[in-house]
Simulated scan of single mutants.
Amino acid sequence: MFNFNGKLINEDDKILDAKNRGLQLGDGVYEELRIVSGEVIFLEEHYLRLMSSMRILRMEIPMNFTMEFMEEEMLKTISNEDLKHTKRVKFTVFRNSDNNSALARNSVSYIVTTSLLLNPFYILEENEYEVELFKDFYKNSSMLSNLNTTNKMLKIVGGIYAQENDYQDCLLLNEQKQVIESLNGNIFLIQKNVIKTPPLTDGCLNGILRKKMIEIISKLEDYELQELSISPFELQKADELFTINAIDGITSITKYRKKVYSNSVAKKLIGKLNAAARMSVSKAV
């Protein structure tokens, strides 16, 4: 079931193919969110990022496109029974056009899709998670790279490379060959008491949980946060690496080439991240 412009429709409805520039041309942006027992996690942050992305891409923002409207449309797509569970929701906005031509109007449409998640809050898995650099293509260090657009070809090809070579993830580089993120999300590197993450100017995704994690680490007395470029040579000197995104939370990297990492810092941070998620819901209430 889909929510297309407020109307619940079936997956085979042809309107999705006929009008969706996000599908046809990659001309769309989206937010992926967690809904726990009918409460949207980090709703305000996701809404503000969506509005910012639409402005950057010169999309027309409808007058009724408020945070309350976005929340209502997402909850509308979830049945009353499913509201008891944890859901992954994808809210995609794409530009309208005539006959899918390259020239577009600035008005927009949206689609809301959902799927089930098993855990209500973030769980730090202890599974093997080996990564490698993906060097076939680079991600440009521009503002467009900070946006969550529907054009994910780089990550798709990188994901196939990881699968073919038995890696759980790959690390992406920008044109200056600096590590900026993984296929799975933003990256954090820990060496002694310093925690580094690439700056947005390097081309990494402007992730909601990246921002939350920066806020959390900045309040810790035992660690120094640095938003600085990460060289591939630093990876084997690090004590710990982890990625983060709004759906999975923290994922600890266990191995890169011959380097094996611990996850002690990630274990300390996962509880604080869950606390921040709960706080976001209580503030909304």
Rank of each mutant, 00 (worst) to 15 (best):
Q168C: 11
F121D: 08
F134R: 08
E130C: 05
G185W: 04
D98G: 13
S107Y: 06
S107K: 07
E175Y: 15
N186T: 04
A102L: 12
F121L: 11
S107M: 04
L172Y: 04
Y161T: 02
K139E: 05
S97M: 08
S182A: 10
Y110D: 09
T150C: 00
N148K: 13
Y129D: 09
E128R: 12
Y129P: 03
N96A: 13
L116H: 08
I156W: 02
V108P: 01
K135G: 10
L118R: 14
I190V: 10
N193Y: 06
K135E: 11
T150V: 01
S97F: 00
I111M: 14
D136V: 15
N186M: 05
S182R: 04
F188N: 00
L117Q: 06
I156T: 04
I111H: 04
E128S: 11
N148E: 11
D136T: 13
N100C: 15
Q191G: 08
L154H: 04
C170M: 09
N174A: 08
L103M: 14
Y122F: 10
I156N: 03
N127E: 14
V157H: 11
V179N: 00
N184T: 14
Y110A: 09
Q178H: 05
N148M: 08
Q178C: 06
D166R: 15
Q163E: 07
N165Q: 02
T113V: 13
S107N: 07
K155P: 10
S109H: 06
T113K: 15
Y161R: 05
V112R: 11
N99E: 15
I160G: 09
M153G: 07
K155Q: 12
L116M: 14
D166Y: 14
G158T: 01
L171R: 10
L117G: 00
V112K: 10
L103T: 03
K152I: 12
L144T: 11
Q176I: 10
G158M: 01
V131P: 00
F94I: 12
G159P: 01
M153T: 13
N184P: 09
N100K: 14
N127C: 11
E125F: 14
A102D: 14
V131L: 03
R95P: 02
A102H: 14
I123C: 15
Y122V: 06
D136I: 15
Q168Y: 11
Y122E: 05
Q168H: 12
N174E: 07
N140T: 10
V179E: 01
K155A: 09
I180S: 01
R95N: 06
I160Y: 04
G185P: 02
V108R: 02
N127A: 11
I111T: 07
N151K: 11
Y167Q: 03
